[in-house]
Each structure stands twice: as C-alpha cells, then as structure tokens.
Design a protein around this nucleic acid. Sequence first.
DNA 1: ATGAAAGCGCTAACAT
DNA 2: ATGTTAGCGCTTTCAT
Lengths: 343, 343
Amino acid sequence: MKYEAITIKDIAKALGLATSTVSRALKGSHEISAETRKLVMDYAGKINYKPNPIALSLKEKRSRAIGVVVCEFANTFFSQVINGIESIAYDRGYHVIISQSHESYEREVLNTQQLASRQVDGLLVSLSTETTDMSHFHFLHDKGLPIVFFDRVCETIETHKVIVDNFKGAYDATCHLINSGFKKIAHITSSPNISITIERLAGYRKALEENKILYDEGIVMFCAHGGMEQAEIESAVMKILDHPSAPDSILAASDRISLGAMSFLKEKNISIPAKIALVGFTNSQQAGIFSPSLTSVSQPAFEMGQVATEKLIEIIESKTPLSKFDTSVLKTKLVVRESSVMA
Amino acid sequence: MKYEAITIKDIAKALGLATSTVSRALKGSHEISAETRKLVMDYAGKINYKPNPIALSLKEKRSRAIGVVVCEFANTFFSQVINGIESIAYDRGYHVIISQSHESYEREVLNTQQLASRQVDGLLVSLSTETTDMSHFHFLHDKGLPIVFFDRVCETIETHKVIVDNFKGAYDATCHLINSGFKKIAHITSSPNISITIERLAGYRKALEENKILYDEGIVMFCAHGGMEQAEIESAVMKILDHPSAPDSILAASDRISLGAMSFLKEKNISIPAKIALVGFTNSQQAGIFSPSLTSVSQPAFEMGQVATEKLIEIIESKTPLSKFDTSVLKTKLVVRESSVMA
DNA sequence: ATGAAAGCGCTAACAT
DNA sequence: ATGTTAGCGCTTTCAT
C-alpha cells in the first residue's frame, strides 16, 4: 500500500514553520503565540492531519493501547467482558487490541509477547485453562509492564485482580439444587489448575458439607481443555450418567461446559431435569430460550471488564509505582429456570 | 512502564559491530560472512532479541497487521468469521486487530481511521447497518490501502468481496416454509441499505412469486439498527402478530433478529410454530437446544473469514496493483428443526 | 564484508 | 516565541 499520510512536516513546510513549532502548537503549548497556534490548528484541521501513532509509540515508548488476552470471544461471558473493557478504554483514549488463546498455553505465550512487543501500555489477562507456568507474565511484569488479571487470575503476581465471588456462585447454585430436592449432585468443571475451578469447587463442597452430603470425587469431572473439545464434556457427562451412585443433577462450571453438556443431553434424549437436572455457569442470553430453559449462575461480565480496565489504567497512569494492589470481587446472580426444577 | 527491550544496538555494541551489520546478519543477507552471521544469530538467540515491530512499521510503512471491522463479535457468525481470519493470518505471519462498530456508523469511521493510522497493511470489513456513506473507505482505498469486504459489502468499491448466496439462502428458507404448509410469511430484516438485506429480500420475494403468493410489504419489517436494539425487533414482531392478514410464519434475516424474535415470542408465551413459525439466519450453535429448536439458514462463517483473508493477503503481497477483482460466493445451508414444522 | 549516515514521524532538550 | 538538533529502533543507500 502507498498510503501517504499527512505529516507534521507537510504542515511546517506549508506554513513556513519549524516542525517543532507545529508540534507544540498542535498540543496547545503556552509558549506558542495564539495566532501561530490558530494558524496551525486551522490548517491541520483543513487538511485533516492525524498524528502517526506509530511514530508516537516509537518516540514515547507508549502506545495508548491496551492488550487483552482471553481464551476466546465466541463466548458470551468474554464478549461481554470485552465490551466492558472497550467502554472504559475508549473513554479514556485507549485502544484495545484483543487476542484469543483458544485455551492453548502456547498461543497465550505468543499473544502475550506479540502484544508486549507492540508496546501496549498494559495487559488485561484471563488465563487459559492449560496455563500452569506463568513465567511469560512474570517476565513482563518484572520489567514493569502493568498487568491486571480478571476471571482466571494468577496468584503469584502481585497486581490488581478482578474476579467474581466464584465460591458463593457455586455455593448458591449447589444449595439451590439441594433445596430443590436433588440429592446426588455431580460437578463438571475446567482444568484443576485455574483459579475459578478451585474456587467453584470449594463452594460446591461447602454446600454439600453444610447439608451433610458426602463429597464424592467420583462424580467431579475435570475438563483439561475447559470444554474446548466437546468430547471431553461428553465423556464427563457419560461418566456421570453411568456412575453407580446415580447422580440426579449436574453443576456445570462454565459457559462452554454448560452449553456443551446441555447439547449432549438433548442429543441423547436424556430429559432435563426429570432424568438429570442441570445448573450452569453461563452468561448466554439464550439461556432462557433453551429447552428446558437453563438455570444459571450469571456473572457481571460487562462490569468486570470495566473494573479491570479502570484498575489497569490506574496503574498505567500512576506517576509512582503502586505498592498496594487489590482484588475486586463482584457478585454473581443465580437465575432459576426450568432445568433445575422438578416437575 | 519501563519495559526496556533489547535492541539491535545492544547486540552491535556487545559484539563490536555496526548496527547495519547486525541488521543484515539477522536477516541473512549474503553479503555478510558466515561467521559474523553465526556470531550475531547466536548472540541474538541467547539474549532473546525480538525486533521492535513499531520501529519496523515506521521504517517500512507496513505492519504485517490486518485490521478487521465488524459490527460485534458477541455474535456467533462474526466470531466464527474472525476465527477463520485468524487461522489464515496467523499462518501467513500477520496479526489481526479487531474492532467493533456496534452497528454505529460513527464508530465504524473511527475504527477504520484508527486502524489505518496504525498502518495496518489491509482491512477486512463488514459494514455496519447504519452505513450509507462509504467515503471513509473510498478515501483509504483510493490511497492504495487494500480492503476486502465480506458479508455486508460495499458495491461502489472495486475490490475482492466474499459473501454467501444470500438470495438462495432466503429463497430456500422461504420455499421450505411454503412447502411446510405456511401461507403467509412475514420477513424481519436489517436496515434496507445493506447488501445482505437486499439480497435476502430478493430471495424471499422470488420464492413467494414462484409459489404465486402475493408479496405484501406490510409484513416486511426493517430494523434500522440491525436488531442491536431489542425494542426494534419486538416492535417488528408485534406489528406482524397484529397484522390483519394474520401471518403464520416469520423469516428472520440475521442472528440477532432470529434470537431476539425467538426470545420475545417465548416471553410472550406465543407458541412456535403453532401460533407462528420461525426460520432464522443464524450460526448459533445453540439453535438446536432452543425450545423449540430453531430451523435456520447457517452460513460458512469460518470459511468466509479464511477466504476473505486469503484474498486480502493476495492484494497486499501483489507486486503490481491488481486490476481484476472477484466476488466469492459461498453456499448457505438450511437446517430444518422444530420451529418450522407443523405438529 | 563491513561501517557511517540518513531517514521514517514525532517530541523535547537546547539554543536564540 | 520559534528554530535547530538529536534520538526512539530499524533498514538502506552509500562509502570504504
């Protein structure tokens, strides 16, 4: 492409000024006479001058861009988070560059490095299910790159984090199943190494315990790829259905797993909730038009994106390195629908 | 942030060479002695040197990045397209920078300009429903920026385009409704100015005509914002339900509209298909678990992304300006489910 | 085969 | 108040 943009030099030449004068005029420096400023401004407006962000980045070593690493955005939860991120970033004058790891550790590392070398001013990250080694983040964080984790966070890096109350989300959902009369509740969740898995599992266990139901690890299924492969979900569902203890309900720990499990059960003509009840963590706006409609733990995804972005910009724009970081915990909401209510 | 990356200068200093020598060695120029090359390569590898893409962009006026403009990715169709785009771009060494217009003309213009000023090597665009003035694209295209349109294309710019056979998609769906015994078929579609609307409407009309059903513009509803506002969908559905001619079925022309209409009908307890049948254009993987499952026209979204990206890279990497452009037309697939089958 | 120097667009010390 | 210059990281003439 031969896209020749207008530069500050063009303006300087046209107006018989030095580039530095133009530069200063453009950013309203007070050491420029009002008339020169007006002259420059008017001309720049007329020829539709736009500063070259590439040159700016090179010069200033900052890009006013924020990098986002999520596993995938074909997932209502993450697409809502991203909308939240954009809503804030946009207002504050930052661009958002989004990348998908597809739950692959390798892709996550690659994307992270790409974003860093494009000199993003900061990173908003939700870990992939595969990730156990965080050194790619440690490396960048140690070099001073601001990072905020959301949803699936990294424990070993001291920075702001934004999560939902996963423990309570799972606890509430499990209690709801118990109170609805279900006695043997299975759990399908993501890989055991990510934060949300641990927290949700703990909430699930706590609810069982409080209700004097024995925890049975035979009906807790982990999906190593977070449900990216439908086969792992199906295998988990099958194992639960075939389990000698005859579970009567399932708590699914993520969007993908909830929808994947539901699809599979329908495909197999296994009636929900008569044969087995289902409660899922999902932000799908379609949960209500499923058959049956799906009881779900919904998360404030948009808000999570907003908070994370505010926190990140706070770090980016702070004059002095922050020393105190916090973890924002947002509330989940249980929406009871047909899939968990006995006829 | 104080993320100090390793530069070519560091290598030069460490090895007592000139930066130009290092630069040449790194890219395997033949005018460098084998031993110097090896020396540089080894050292660069050892200290994990990564060229600064910002500096490269500034210098070469290209970025090996492709910009994508879609209306939103919280939409199965577009998120699948983007996955297709990434699959090819990635292989060919390009990054993908995605932006959402949210069906707003203003955002589309802004995003486009942002991407251009970030010196993307090319643009992959699906127009927002609001867009009627294409001058922002004309401007860039005239300056030589490669652009490929997909899905919602711009007629007035001569370049590669990738679409599906919208005419046939709508025609097939309408014929299916007719053959299933429906007599009065309403149509809810996007704004009248975008290509897909026109083509789908034409397919719908053709099917009616061939079956000697009178076209009734009173039951064809346009959503100015492409269904971004649920209210416009609901108003369209209401008008259809209240129409004196008592339509017995609806053909919905997009993902958003299909799902929005279905949600609304369920909310109002209007039975599908007994009271009114519904066929939608949607790529939602959940169409099968809706209640009732939704008959839909599905599009090869992933493939569309792939083809569009290949076409774009072809333009970008072509030595001489292309003079012949083509429009790839992919096939749609009608998946018949419960929502259009009389009991 | 290698080095020196200019330049991509911009800003910021450092003149004047 | 404005101009001159250097430099961000890199490639690329143009020397040598």
